[in-house]
Amino acid sequence: DRMTSQEAACFPDIISGPQQTQKVFLFIRNRTLQLWLDNPKIQLTFEATLQQLEAPYNSDTVLVHRVHSYLERHGLINF
């Protein structure tokens, strides 16, 4: 699994950072998509996403918020 070119453009700090940071991003992105796909008729809020993310992935709330906002803005969740 890899970041898309659009994700890389929107998250230059992640793509240029350590490999582990990219893996954390990918986990948060994929898990958020999975959470929404589990029940697409219900809006997936940032707060609900954060509550359902497993530790330690829920510890970087800023990154979780950025990923959630990106997915929502680009019509990948909550459409």
Rank of each mutant, 00 (worst) to 15 (best):
L76R: 10
N39E: 07
V64Q: 00
G75M: 07
M3Q: 01
T21Y: 11
N58Q: 10
M3P: 04
F79L: 13
K23D: 07
P56Q: 05
P12I: 05
H74G: 10
Y57P: 02
H68K: 00
R66I: 00
A8V: 12
C10S: 12
S59L: 11
R29W: 04
A48I: 07
G17D: 05
Q52T: 12
G17V: 03
H68T: 00
Q43H: 14
L71G: 00
T32D: 03
A55I: 08
T45K: 05
T32P: 00
A8T: 09
S16D: 07
Q20F: 15
I77L: 03
T61V: 14
K23Y: 06
Y57I: 05
K23V: 09
W36K: 02
A55L: 06
N78C: 02
F27D: 06
T49C: 13
I42A: 14
P12M: 04
A9Q: 12
R2T: 09
H68F: 12
L35E: 04
L53E: 00
S69W: 07
F11N: 02
S5P: 13
T4I: 03
R73L: 12
D38G: 10
I28M: 03
I77R: 00
A55R: 10
T32N: 03
L63P: 00
E54M: 09
Y70N: 02
Q22E: 07
V64N: 03
K41S: 13
Q22Y: 10
V24M: 15
I15G: 10
V67D: 01
Q52F: 08
T61N: 08
R29S: 00
Q22T: 06
P12F: 05
R29M: 06
N78W: 00
R2P: 05
E7G: 00
T4K: 03
L63Y: 03
A9K: 09
N58G: 13
E54D: 09
L26T: 12
N78Q: 02
E72Q: 09
L33W: 05
G75D: 12
Q43I: 11
G17A: 12
Q43D: 10
L76K: 13
V24P: 05
M3E: 03
F25R: 00
S69M: 11
V64T: 05
T45I: 02
T21C: 12
Q20H: 14
N30W: 03
P40S: 07
V24H: 14
F46Q: 08
N78A: 00
Y57H: 06
Q51H: 12
L35P: 01
T45A: 04
S5N: 08
I42Q: 11
N39C: 10
D38P: 00
I28H: 02
P56M: 03
R29P: 00
A8K: 13
R31D: 01
N30I: 03
L26N: 09
D13F: 01
W36G: 05
Q51S: 13
V64E: 01
D38R: 13
L63R: 00
I77H: 04
E54W: 09
D13H: 06
T4S: 14
G75C: 08
W36D: 03
L76C: 08
Q22P: 03
E7Y: 00
F25C: 01
R66M: 05
Y70G: 00
L44K: 00
S59C: 11
Q52R: 14
S69L: 07
H65T: 06
P18T: 11
D38A: 15
Y57M: 07
L71Y: 00
T49K: 01
I28C: 05
T21D: 12
N78L: 03
L76T: 04
F27I: 06
L33F: 08
L63A: 04
C10D: 15
I77E: 02
I42M: 13
I15E: 11
F46M: 08
N58A: 08
I15Y: 15
Q52I: 10
R2D: 05
S59K: 14
T49D: 00
P18G: 15
P56I: 03
A55Q: 06
A9I: 08
A8I: 08
I42F: 14
L50F: 06
S5M: 15
L63T: 05
V67I: 15
R2E: 04
F25K: 02
A55T: 12
I15K: 08
L50M: 10
Y70F: 11
T4V: 03
